[in-house]
Amino acid sequence: MSMKHFLLVGLLALISACASNQVLDESLSESELYLLAQQDLDANSYGAAVEKLRALESRYPFGRFAQQAQLELIYAYYENMEPEAAKSSADRFIRLHPQHPNVDYAYYMRGMTSFTRDRGIFERFLPLDMTRRDPGAARDSFNEFAQLVSRYPDSRYAPDARLRMVYLRNLLAAYDVNVAHYYLKRQANVAAANRGRYVVENFQQTPAVADGLAVMVEAYQRLAMPDLAETSLQVLRANYPEHPSLDGDSFRHHVEPAKRERGMFTTMAGDLMGKVMTPPSRNAGTQMEREMQQQYLQALDALPREIRAPAQSEEEKQGRSIWSRITFGLFD
């Protein structure tokens, strides 16, 4: 390990130690603690806000700010990238205050923690296809949003939850189509046909239904079941005449429709949902590259002038990768 790495680890350890050694004044009143927590939340200092909200709840469990602090603790944990703590706090609030007028917020945040569980830093900056990932978090999120919508249909959070449920349903359907294509690749034709039929029967009105029908046609043709293959093909032609597998009167199934599927699900959760993001032109760069470049420039502008690196020539800049620029060369 180089000296730069040692310095980086030491700096992070020092910052962590300083943050963990902060001691709140025992004489702070309930309102003072709550006000300090609000200031931390407004300043996006979510770790500090967590400490103050937890202190408020433990010191004044029956105070007038106690229940509100429990709600805001869910949000602080969520923004501090502690999804399990946020979900645990939401479950606790629902259990302790089932009749609270703002309990719908706890249900909503519980769904949000599952919604963003698999969307870490790599998923934000790397072109990963979420339809090929483990769908466990997506299923949990869908069920939790569904519970919110069924219990509190008039909640202010219900419209957003419904939009996210549409997105999650499309994602789960596309995941099952990917599984069916995997079965086709492995010559597991019966399993592929069953998975395609499952998509058609259980995910109506999703874009994946057409792919499910195409999988059924291909699988039944391989299984020498012409009647079922022809029936599925007729349904595909009647409902999805523009499907890529249809070429005039002939059928040619695309076993790997990764590019087409990935385009449907590159929209980030914050853009929700019914908005289809138009892929950028090739000469404009990818969305990932633009976001990374913007974050790099913002981080560079935030540096004090004393520690900024000297200006580089164009040849030097072109020789460095985006990762090298973002990490300021620490890991070169």
Rank of each mutant, 00 (worst) to 15 (best):
A49Y: 05
Q67L: 05
Y60N: 02
S45Q: 15
S45N: 15
L73I: 05
Q67T: 09
A48W: 01
K52V: 03
R54G: 03
A37G: 05
L33P: 00
Y34T: 03
N44T: 10
R54A: 04
E57P: 01
R54C: 03
A69L: 05
A76Q: 06
G47F: 13
Y77Q: 13
E51P: 00
A49F: 02
D40H: 13
E79W: 15
P61S: 00
A76I: 10
P61M: 00
G47Q: 14
F62S: 09
L56W: 04
Q68A: 09
V50K: 00
L56V: 02
N80E: 15
D42N: 11
F62N: 09
A66W: 05
L33S: 04
I74G: 07
Y60E: 06
E32W: 08
P61G: 02
L36P: 03
N44W: 10
A69I: 04
L73M: 04
F62I: 02
S58Q: 12
L56Y: 05
N80G: 15
L33T: 03
A49D: 01
L41I: 08
Y78I: 08
A37K: 00
E51M: 08
A48I: 03
L53T: 01
R59G: 07
R64E: 09
A43P: 07
G47C: 05
G63K: 00
E51S: 10
M81Y: 15
Q70L: 09
Y46S: 02
Q38N: 12
I74K: 07
R64I: 04
G47P: 08
A66D: 03
A76P: 12
N80K: 15
Y78T: 12
E57A: 09
M81F: 15
S31P: 04
Q70T: 07
L53Y: 00
F62Y: 10
Y60P: 08
L56N: 06
A55C: 10
Q39P: 01
S58L: 10
E57K: 09
A37T: 01
Q70Y: 07
Y60V: 04
A66L: 05
R64H: 06
A69M: 06
S31V: 11
N44V: 09
A43R: 11
Y75I: 14
P61F: 04
L35Y: 11
S31C: 04
S58E: 12
L33C: 07
Q68Y: 03
Q39M: 06
P61W: 02
N80I: 15
R59Q: 11
M81W: 14
Y75G: 09
Q68D: 10
Q39T: 11
S31L: 10
Y77F: 15
A69R: 04
A49Q: 04
R64T: 08
L71T: 02
R64W: 01
R59P: 08
L56A: 07
L53K: 00
Y75H: 12
I74F: 05
Y77V: 14
A66P: 02
R59S: 11
Y78R: 12
P61C: 01
V50F: 05
Q67I: 04
A37F: 03
Y46V: 02
